[in-house]
Design a protein around this nucleic acid. Structure first.
Lengths: 185, 185
DNA sequence: AATTTCATGTAACCAGTTACATGATTCA
DNA sequence: TGAATCATGTAACTGGTTACATGAAATT
């Protein structure tokens, strides 16, 4: 068995970044440290083992620069197999569970989607996203009503839920906006 | 040493919920399964060990119902020490790192704040939150500009960043709204 | 009688964190 | 020459996941 590849959010981020341009572990650390892309730790204890696993799985290939030095620099490039895995992962259907628990990962997927799958699929993704957020917002609003009614944990509890709703509504509105922008590009 | 208590988001959620009313492990599982409060797994492998650790640390105390049955039900109540730990955790100052990496945990803190710290502190928390989000949004917008300029990873990458900005802006707007609502309550 | 719900727990595993270690190169 | 940056790695730990196990009580 190909044993897939460890499909953590970190591995998706790494694969996506390397698919854009060859990068070393240190480059990835710098990216996670200096840019606001998702919630990835620049700790070497996370990145280097992840890179090794993905290389072992044949998704990325490392080129060594300065072979005979003590600490050679490894720059990784995505392989055909890795690109296929990335495409698969980016084109996986959005589930309700993604909406509820992994909105950040959906956004990460979208971030790489333009380059890897193209504009058409990106727009379709946003349509799907927006239309799935709407019923989720409805579900959250129903819960808000219930929570307000039984009203122990009053005051701030219900307001906190409102923030969650506002977050989803902002995301749906953003999706609609981006659909329009992409279409008129 | 009091060895604090494992300050994971899960332990905060458990402590906060138990501070509102006595709950068993199963009650917590049901809450995580059926209500949209944060991202907590209802897996027994997470909850029961966490409860034991917190009981061991003296933050919660379990009362056994049906002692002589094979599987007695344990209902946990918060102790004075636990309440103190909760208060401490809720009243910890907001850091920039919280804004960037742990917005969800800040919301969880706010959810329990009304009951535990009161309205005055909750309002102060929201002021602090909103005023810290604003410079963060500025930072994100600067990065957006940079990203648009060097424009490899074009198309969707920059738009994904926009979603992050929209999320923070929605949260700041929510905070301002709730401040007004709490004040006029 | 069979299924679902109540209810608690453990064992194997795994990803990620923290902290440490190494050493080259560049800059002040 | 000393500090910062480049650059890769490991070891110990830990929190959480998945899957399994047990059995009572209530429901169908």
């Amino acid at each position: 068995m190909t044993r897939g590849f460890p499909s953590t959010t970190l591995s998706l981020a790494i694969l996506g970044l390397i698919s854009q341009e060859p990068l070393s572990g240190y480059d990835l650390r710098k990216t996670f440290l200096t840019t606001p892309m998702g919630h990835f730790s620049p700790s070497p204890g996370a990145i280097y083992p992840a890179l090794k696993k993905m290389e072992h799985a044949g998704l990325i290939a490392g080129k060594i620069e300065g072979q005979n030095t003590l600490r050679p620099k490894r720059t990784y490039t995505v392989t055909a197999k890795g690109l296929k895995a990335l495409r698969q992962r980016l084109s996986a259907p959005i589930t309700d569970s993604d909406i509820t628990w992994r909105l950040d990962e959906l956004m990460l997927r979208f971030a790489f989607m333009g380059n890897v799958l193209g504009k058409r699929e990106s727009i379709a993704f946003l349509y799907d996203l927006a239309s799935r957020i709407e019923p989720h917002v409805k579900y959250l609003k129903d819960h808000l009503k219930i929570q307000r009614e039984r009203e122990h944990n009053r005051l701030t509890g219900a307001y906190a839920l409102e923030q969650g709703i506002a977050k989803y509504e902002a995301t749906a509105a953003w999706a609609r906006r981006v659909i329009a922008a992409l279409k008129s590009e």
